[in-house]
Simulated assay, not measured.
Amino acid sequence: MSGFTIIGAGGFIGGRLAQALRARGEAVYAPARGESDLFERDLGQVFYCAGLTGDFAVRPFDTVEAHVTLLAQVLAKARFQRLIYLSSTRLYDSLGAAGGDETDILAFDPAAPRNVYDLSKALGENLTLARSDGRGAVARLSNVFDLAEGASGFLPELLQAARRSRVLSRDSVPGAVRDYIHADDVVAGLLAMADQQAQGVVNVARGENVSNADLARVFAEAGWTLNLAADRPMPPAPVCATERLRALGVTPSDARILLRDALSAPGFFQG
Rank of each mutant, 00 (worst) to 15 (best):
R232S: 15
V218A: 14
A229Q: 11
A20E: 12
A188S: 00
I13R: 12
R206M: 05
I257Q: 15
A216L: 05
E102T: 01
P110W: 06
A30C: 15
S142E: 05
G271C: 05
A122C: 06
G3S: 07
L141M: 02
G249C: 10
G10C: 14
L168E: 07
A262G: 11
L141R: 01
P31F: 05
I105Q: 09
D254R: 03
R164L: 15
P113Q: 08
V144D: 00
A222H: 12
A192T: 05
F39I: 02
V186F: 04
I7Y: 00
L263H: 12
L91Q: 12
S132I: 01
D171K: 14
D109L: 13
F56V: 02
E208G: 06
G8P: 01
L86V: 10
P156N: 05
A30Y: 14
R16I: 11
S36E: 15
V177P: 06
W224R: 09
E243W: 11
N126G: 12
D185A: 04
Q199L: 09
T63A: 04
V28Y: 06
R114I: 07
V68W: 03
D62Q: 12
S2D: 13
A162Y: 14
A112Q: 15
T242G: 05
A148M: 04
F61K: 08
A9I: 11
R90I: 08
A137I: 03
G189Q: 03
T89H: 07
I257F: 15
A66P: 06
F12V: 00
S142R: 05
Q270L: 09
P233C: 05
A183C: 03
A137M: 02
S94A: 14
A139L: 00
K121F: 12
L75V: 01
D231M: 06
G51H: 03
D179G: 00
V173R: 09
F145D: 04
G124R: 09
D179A: 05
I181V: 06
G136A: 00
L155I: 10
V46G: 11
S253C: 09
T53I: 14
A50S: 13
R163D: 10
S211N: 14
Y180H: 04
A66V: 08
G100E: 13
P156E: 08
C240D: 13
T225L: 12
R170A: 14
C240M: 12
A122N: 10
A237S: 14
A66S: 09
G99V: 07
I257P: 12
A255M: 10
L86N: 08
D133T: 03
S264H: 11
L155V: 10
D37K: 15
Y92S: 02
V144F: 00
T89I: 06
D254Y: 11
A213S: 11
N115F: 08
I13G: 14
L75W: 10
A176G: 13
A130K: 15
V28A: 07
A32N: 14
T225I: 06
G134K: 08
D179C: 01
V116Y: 03
N209A: 09
Y117C: 00
W224K: 07
G153D: 03
G100D: 08
E243G: 10
G99I: 14
S165H: 02
L86E: 04
G153K: 04
E40Q: 10
S36H: 11
N227Q: 11
L86R: 11
Y29A: 01
L43N: 02
F268M: 05
R246H: 04
R59G: 09
L263Q: 04
D179T: 05
N126C: 06
